[in-house]
Each structure stands twice: as C-alpha cells, then as structure tokens.
Amino acid sequence: MAELFVKVMQTVSMFTVPVLFLGIILLGMLRRVRVYESFVTGGKEGFDIFLRILPYLVAVFVAIGMFRVSGALEVLSEWLKPLVAAIGMPPEVLPVALMRPLSGSGSMGLASEIIKAKPNSFEAFVASNVFGSTDTTFYVIAVYFGSVGIRKIRHAMVAGLVADAVGILVAVAVSHAVWGK
C-alpha cells in the first residue's frame, strides 16, 4: 500500500516540472507571448537574488559551522537528556532533533549515522521521522528574508521553532504508536 502510494507520488513529482515547462511554454506560444524574451527577462532576477542573499547565507552558515565544531550540540544533548526520556525519544535521536532547525545536511548526516548503524531499530525509525517532520528553519528565514532585505522578522522565528518542536514531538509520538504494528 505504502509502496504503491510512493510510486504514484514519485510519478507525480517526476512529471511536475516537465509538464510545467511544456504547459507554460505551449500556452505562451498559443497566446503569442514572446516566450524566449519573456524567459530571459524573468531569469535575469536570478543572479540579483543570489547577490542579495549571499551575505545572509554566509552569516548563517558560518555561525552554524562554528556551533557544530565547538560541540555545543553535544553539551546541549547532555543537558536535555532527562527531558528527552520523559517524551519517549531515544537519546541517540536528540542531536538529530537539535540539528534539524539549523542545518539540513548536518541533521541528515546525524540521522544517517543512526540508520546505518542499526537499520531496523526503533532509534533509526524515530530518527527518520524526526528528520522528515520539518525543515531547516534558520536557513529558510535567512534566505527568504535576506532576499528582500527584511531586517525585522517579527514572529517568524517563534512560529518556525515552535512548529519544529511540534513536528518533532508528533514524530516521536506517532513513531511509538506505529512501531511494531
């Protein structure tokens, strides 16, 4: 069942971009839009966006890099261990959860380590779900707001981080409910 669902969704994902391309260009030509010129005009913005987000990207990445190397996450994991036991999360998964809002590749690396070590364990299952439950909040905030020069982000960070926490808690709870059934 799950496999069939994945097949269907993968097919949809596979077709989305080509169909989008074909559909837009075809419709454009039918409506006598100068498709080539239009495309180039629109695309020009791409490089401007890169220049605009670069300082934000560098700032966020450097802080995350230093934070990771310093071992702050390990220290934080150690502190939070009692809390983690209370919500039923295996302690190995905690670094994945803490890394998740900071860095996609970082948390992916931590999760893969757990999965590779014990592919069929509950820990690996929870780690996969925690990773899949949410996205990298800091990166998205930096890039999206950076691209238009917003400096006061108001409640975006709170909303993002609370949503991450909810996603992770639900991932753990659902893992418990589903595991072994």
């Binding site: 454009g28 039918l30 839009v33 005009t41 629109g42 695309g43 020009k44 913005e45 791409g46 890169f50």
Partner: peptide, 21 residues
C-alpha cells in the same frame, strides 16, 4: 548560493512566461 542561481534563473524565467501568458 551559486548552485541556487541556475535553478533560480530557470524557474523565474518560466514563471515570467507563465505570467505573460
């Protein structure tokens, strides 16, 4: 960021065609 540029140009270009159409 550099990796983003190419996809950005591609999809923003496409978006513009879609808008004009």
């Amino acid at each position: 960021g550099l990796g983003l540029v190419s996809t950005m140009v591609l999809f923003l270009g496409l978006m513009k065609v879609g808008e004009d159409a």
